[in-house]
Design a binder for these strands. Structure first.
Lengths: 337, 337
DNA sequence: CATCATAATGTACGCGCGTTCATTCTAACG
DNA sequence: CGTTAGAATGAACGCGCGTACATTATGATG
């Protein structure tokens, strides 16, 4: 095939190759002839052969944890990150290889490079475990480009793309205080994620700065269901006057709380202040709409992709979060039409 | 590398190849020796070379429309479908190649096979246009395996995986009528999607069956924003008594309408009945919660993947939709705590 | 016009597998 | 024990590129 093009254009196969790989010097007139011939013969270089010859694929592998019952793509968090990755990969001429891996085949990241020849790797939803760390350290040792998203691991900090969750949480809590809610309580997530811990710290920062007394946090698991389940306890806090607002560590719990507490006769923005975290789509849909913190997951995906493609050596600090004020945190009566 | 393994195991390279490709007959004892040697030397066959030699990749390409401003993965529709595709591909031993393509490079589906050597193709968000059809017909002609999701095209019906949107829309409208809303109006999407047309037909089916007079539909573009923008017109319909309920062609428009009409003093479930379509996450978050139609997008993704891998010749009819009744369609006062 | 540096092109080969075809081993049978 | 069909293995090659190195064309300079 390439031979035919070469013959037709009166050049050698090497020249055809050079024309299509782009980088090398080819006389414009020759290039023209080759392209013309190729077009007439319908020749397109095979990406597969090209990758093989260069011993590398331009693909960036995205490892997602495989969780049988959970429909991962439905969650805002993963969706946004994937969107960002996809966008950046697109710009850099790579394609995405989606790799779902169940926990028992987890440690084989190295294989993906040797066997599948991915060009870079992004690991989403990594957990802080020994084998996970070892697998990643192997990548480090072999000089492979990869990125972790939102999960710091000891010794791998420079590979982590994350937002400044502590600051985000501080912003949300400080905002509640400014609005006149003087006793916000924190509703956190499981402490084995580094960002759960960070968000709790941010709450404490804000409380200390305001000289307010911090309350014992409620702990959920980031699901709306767990928010619903905590509504009882939260309502007691509010009714007893122990607390007058809630800073939740994510939107889904916040929405659960909002809905659960409504059942108990408490309205966000009227009877208590409420802030979420993530600025998910859902935050716009509740009544009242949920004040939240935007952590730019999309941007994180973009950064991760650039790291995985070797475009970026290390992230330039943590991404700054942004407070998105809606109604749930504003102190006023819920309007009624 | 393969040579070393062969030597160590005292066999030829061909035998090593046979052991790893699995299919061919190798004496168990020999296989054992080869695997042992490979394991000791850390040999893993290169997937890249394998794909190259076989002139095909086991990847299944998923083409997503690239829309600059829209963050595609955030939408429930695509997320669910991707989840289903990923699941089925996983089971069948394939990986997913995500391919975002902007509208102007749309017709090049054939290239993906010739150039990228994807093993199968799934096209999401296809549009009913001439070039689109031609590109797909080319695949058909070349005997490539591919699947369309939720977009019928003339002559390509057997390649389409879809839910019975007409029936789903009929269900929703009939439900509104049963609830005592006697004059539901339809809020549709752009008519160049086949399922927009189907949903309109379903509405008409229900209206005819009930002997009700059907109204001129409102037309939006499936976004929440367009729902907000139509709120004015919809409110007029309701206030004038021309209509007393709305059957929307998707949840996002329904949610926009719900929010927009609240601004105008109209509450769903009290002042008018409202049903959406898709059973998205958001349907659970509004107040009142949105009645919707669940179209099993996840299952559609699974089917599409099987078609794209040649596992499935043609879909076994359309997937049945399911009505999910929540509060927005129930005729009663909105409760007030 | 001869010289020479440099740009442009050609030659030849290897990347790591799968696979065809030839060859050798195995075991069942007469 | 000889024969033979069939199973197991080996030898050789090609898949379609990129690229190192050799070769030739180009054009500036003396």
């Amino acid at each position: 095939m390439r031979k035919q093009v070469a013959d037709k254009a009166g050049v050698s196969e090497a020249t055809v190759s050079r024309v299509f790989s782009g980088s090398e010097a080819v006389k414009p007139k020759t290039r023209e002839r080759v392209l013309q011939a190729a077009s007439e013969l319908g020749y397109v270089p095979s990406e597969l052969a090209r990758q093989f010859a260069k011993r590398r694929s331009g693909n960036i592998g995205v490892v997602l944890p495989y969780l049988p019952k959970v429909q991962l793509f439905s969650t805002y968090y993963f969706s946004e990150i994937l969107g960002g990755i996809s966008e950046a990969a697109r710009e850099l001429g790579s394609d995405l290889l989606l790799l779902q891996r169940s926990p028992d085949e987890r440690r084989e990241y190295g294989l993906l490079f040797r066997q599948r020849k991915v060009g870079g790797l992004i690991v989403l939803g990594a957990r802080d475990g020994e084998e996970e760390r070892e697998a990643l350290l192997e990548l480090e040792r072999d000089g492979h480009a990869y990125a972790l998203v939102n999960q710091r691991m000891e010794g791998l900090e420079q590979r982590t793309v994350e937002a400044d969750h502590r600051e985000g949480s501080r912003l949300a809590t400080a905002h509640l205080l400014e609005q006149g809610w003087s006793r916000p309580a924190f509703v956190g997530g499981p402490p084995d994620y580094s960002n759960s811990r960070d968000r709790l710290l941010g709450y404490r920062d804000a409380m200390s700065a305001a000289g307010a007394e911090r309350l014992e946090p409620l702990v959920g698991n980031y699901s709306r269901k767990s928010g619903l389940e905590m509504a009882d306890a939260a309502a007691r806090l509010i009714r007893s006057g122990e607390a007058d607002a809630l800073a939740a560590a994510n939107d889904r719990m916040a929405i659960g709380l909002l809905q659960g507490m409504r059942q108990l006769g408490l309205e966000a923005g009227r009877d208590y202040g409420l802030a979420g975290y993530d600025d998910s789509d859902g935050a716009r849909l509740t009544q009242p709409a949920l004040t939240s913190v935007s952590a730019s997951f999309y941007e994180m995906g973009r950064l991760a992709a650039r790291m995985a493609l070797g475009e970026l050596e290390r992230p330039d600090g943590k991404l700054p979060p942004r407070l998105v004020v809606r109604e749930s945190s504003l102190k006023r009566d819920v309007e009624r039409n």
